[in-house]
């Protein structure tokens, strides 16, 4: 599924948060959204997910304007994982993942065998099978994040939108999750803070600053000392680690 963002703007009264963004994500591509806090990554992602109505511009999926889709249609085409989605409810892991099947069944019937199969596969993919019956409250932050991702996979969509999915994860689970994001045939847009992780797993990086895209391209072109200085206000050195992956080192900020 090819995602096209054309001249997209969004904001709250008195403040423009996303300002005229143009972006194309090819079918099956994994694109990393990077940028400092408040640069508009989350808002852009929410517009792409159809959760916010843009004040200007359009978002197209394979040419179709997302504004013309019903909530149900959207949920069948794209899955979205929020940064922190918590609940007071006593839902179990498998029940949360089953929420991903909501748009795939009629109001009149409950989950059927096929739904249970999809859920089992998603749990398996995220290594959550053993936790299937564990209540939400007993999960660690990382387990909750993986449960949400399993739920998103259970939606069986062709696009996957992730807002800082590695936040609560330990190193191993960060690597596994990003491995999954880059290897899945789905089109993936993922907002990330960890630049090295973004560089390693994304086909392309999109650097945002003040609601606009300031760089878009392969990691080596986007993660440059001048750009990082301009956008993040840090003195960085870009190199390779001993495994050959792009690495970013930072100097002490000068006051």
């Amino acid at each position: 599924m090819r995602i096209q963002v054309e001249h997209l703007s969004w904001g709250v009264p008195g403040k423009t948060i996303v300002n005229g963004v143009d972006l194309v994500v090819g079918d099956g591509e994994t694109v990393g959204l990077i940028g400092p806090n408040g640069s508009g990554k989350s808002s852009l992602l929410r517009c792409i997910a159809g959760l916010r109505t843009p004040t200007g511009g359009v978002v197209r999926y394979d040419g179709a304007d997302i504004a013309s889709w019903s909530a149900r249609e959207k949920a069948r085409q794209l899955a979205f994982v929020e940064q922190t989605a918590d609940t007071d409810s006593d839902l179990r892991v498998s029940e949360v993942v089953m929420l991903g099947r909501t748009a795939h069944r009629s109001r009149w019937r409950g989950p059927d065998a096929a739904d249970h199969e999809v859920v089992a596969a998603a749990l398996d993919r995220l290594g959550l099978t053993a936790l299937a019956d564990r209540p939400w409250k007993q999960l660690s932050g990382g387990e909750r994040q993986r449960t949400h991702l399993a739920r998103a996979l259970a939606q069986r969509t062709s696009a996957l939108l992730l807002d800082e999915p590695t936040n609560h994860l330990d190193v191993r689970h960060q690597l596994e999750l990003m491995e999954l994001a880059s290897s899945t045939p789905q089109t993936v847009v993922v907002a990330l803070h960890d630049l090295a992780l973004a560089a390693r797993y994304c086909d392309r990086l999109v650097l945002m600053h003040g609601g606009t895209v300031v760089a878009d391209g392969p990691a080596a072109d986007v993660l440059t000392a001048p750009l990082l200085r301009a956008v993040f206000d840090v003195e960085a050195e870009i190199g390779r680690d001993s495994l050959g992956h792009l690495a970013v080192g930072y100097r002490e900020p000068v006051r």
């Binding site: 959760l51 909530a71 149900r72 249609e73």
Partner: peptide
Amino acid sequence: SSALDGFAFGADTASSLGID
């Protein structure tokens, strides 16, 4: 019922599950 279940994680997640 499914919508009521989906509301557990707030409006944005509910909406992304296909609930109007």
